[in-house]
Simulated assay, not measured.
Amino acid sequence: HCRQHGMSLSEIRALLAFSDNPNSSCDWINELIKQHIEDVEKQIEDLIHLKNHLENLYHKCDGGKKDGCGILKSLIEGEMCMYCQKDKLNIA
């Protein structure tokens, strides 16, 4: 179950060691889970960013253009993603 929740082997070892000898506070387990929640929130944010960027690229292609693909043109020219710029400027 721990691996399914994204825990590392060292974290699992620490949890197992604690479960064998639970004499101290388990506050560190809450902190461990809190950190994993923050990591998942960052991954979700990154995936939403990627989705927005891909959708922006997708709309650059109107199919069958004889003068080249808008998606490839954007990628080759290194056109900045409006979502990437927003992140760099820290605009909400």
Score class of each variant (00 low, 15 high):
1 H>I: 15
2 C>D: 10
3 R>S: 07
4 Q>E: 04
4 Q>F: 05
6 G>F: 08
6 G>K: 03
6 G>N: 02
6 G>P: 06
9 L>K: 14
11 E>L: 13
11 E>P: 05
12 I>D: 15
12 I>F: 15
13 R>A: 10
15 L>T: 07
15 L>G: 03
17 A>N: 15
17 A>L: 15
18 F>E: 01
18 F>C: 08
19 S>E: 14
20 D>P: 03
20 D>N: 13
25 S>W: 07
25 S>A: 13
25 S>I: 08
26 C>A: 15
27 D>N: 12
29 I>E: 01
29 I>N: 02
30 N>A: 09
30 N>E: 10
31 E>I: 09
32 L>K: 03
34 K>V: 10
35 Q>P: 08
35 Q>T: 15
39 D>K: 15
39 D>V: 12
40 V>Y: 06
40 V>R: 10
41 E>I: 13
41 E>Q: 12
44 I>W: 04
45 E>Y: 10
46 D>V: 06
47 L>S: 01
47 L>C: 05
47 L>G: 01
48 I>P: 04
49 H>W: 12
49 H>Y: 10
50 L>E: 11
51 K>Q: 06
51 K>Y: 08
52 N>G: 04
52 N>D: 00
52 N>L: 00
53 H>N: 01
53 H>R: 03
54 L>M: 11
55 E>K: 15
58 Y>I: 08
61 C>P: 02
61 C>Y: 05
62 D>V: 07
62 D>E: 13
63 G>Y: 00
64 G>A: 09
64 G>H: 14
64 G>W: 11
65 K>S: 12
65 K>N: 11
66 K>R: 13
66 K>M: 09
69 C>G: 05
70 G>W: 04
71 I>L: 02
72 L>D: 07
72 L>W: 10
73 K>D: 05
73 K>W: 05
74 S>Q: 10
74 S>D: 13
75 L>R: 01
75 L>A: 01
77 E>I: 12
79 E>C: 05
81 C>Y: 03
82 M>T: 14
84 C>Y: 09
85 Q>T: 07
88 K>S: 06
88 K>C: 07
